[in-house]
Computed example of a mutant assay.
Amino acid sequence: MNKKEAIEKIVNIPDGQVNMIGSLEIPAGATGIVVFAHGSGSSRHSPRNNYVAAILRSHGLGTLLLDLLTVGEDTDYEMRFNINLLARRMLSTTKWLQEQDDTNRLNIGYFGASTGAAAALQTAAILGDQISAIVSRGGRPDLAWPYLKNVKSPTLLLVGGNDGVVIELNKKAYNEINAVKQMDVIPGATHLFEEPGTLETVAELAANWFVKYLFRHKPE
């Protein structure tokens, strides 16, 4: 990619017979890109994830927001919790990014919400140092439990202070992860971070994490 050119386009990413639709935006000069893995029932149009993505781009990071499930698949509640399928789609997405001229030189990070966080962690465990950093927002990392000990990517777990059950699940997951890690509890926030100022806090913490670990020379 020519570092002087910004990119903004809709992309189609294949996984077998399925094509995932994504919104790809890369600021000029970016050295990293963050793939968003949405939670159950959400999509690339999620206002919360789009807000976070905009903040990341303001820090010079590229973003890819995509639907891991087709419209038809998303009507099946069980499919939303099929972490193996979601992780396979994340693998296909990562492979696609590594093959495109526009993105193959960018360090890759994952931002996962709810079940998407489990898919991100499971995929990162499989790919090892190919994934430079992970941020989980209100995530369910426990759903990727067998993979957590193999995660090598620096991982930031963000949880709402009023999201009691999820706090406990994240604490257990945190103890299982052997990589560089940090867990921040956002005071006053519930699961969706709808309270004033809480999503802004998430976005800034995520941006700082990704800038720290994605603004590096990409390993050959």
Rank of each mutant, 00 (worst) to 15 (best):
T75V: 12
I186S: 06
A125T: 05
Y77L: 15
T93A: 04
T94I: 06
S46E: 02
N175A: 14
N12P: 00
E204Q: 12
K212R: 15
S43D: 13
I108Y: 04
R80A: 13
T31G: 08
S42H: 04
Y213G: 09
G32I: 00
F215Y: 15
N19V: 06
K152C: 00
L148F: 11
G160V: 05
L148C: 08
N107Y: 02
I126M: 12
T75H: 15
S92W: 03
G197K: 10
V180P: 12
Y77G: 07
V185Q: 12
L205N: 14
L192V: 13
K218C: 03
E5L: 14
G138C: 09
G128V: 07
G60F: 02
G164M: 08
L64A: 03
D15N: 13
V180D: 15
L156Q: 05
G164N: 14
D102N: 13
N150R: 07
I10F: 12
L121F: 04
D142K: 02
N49V: 08
L56K: 04
D67Q: 12
S42G: 06
Q130V: 03
E5N: 15
A37C: 15
K218S: 03
K9Q: 14
I21R: 13
R88G: 10
Q100A: 11
A117R: 00
S42D: 12
P219F: 04
P187M: 13
I131R: 02
N175S: 14
E73G: 13
S92V: 05
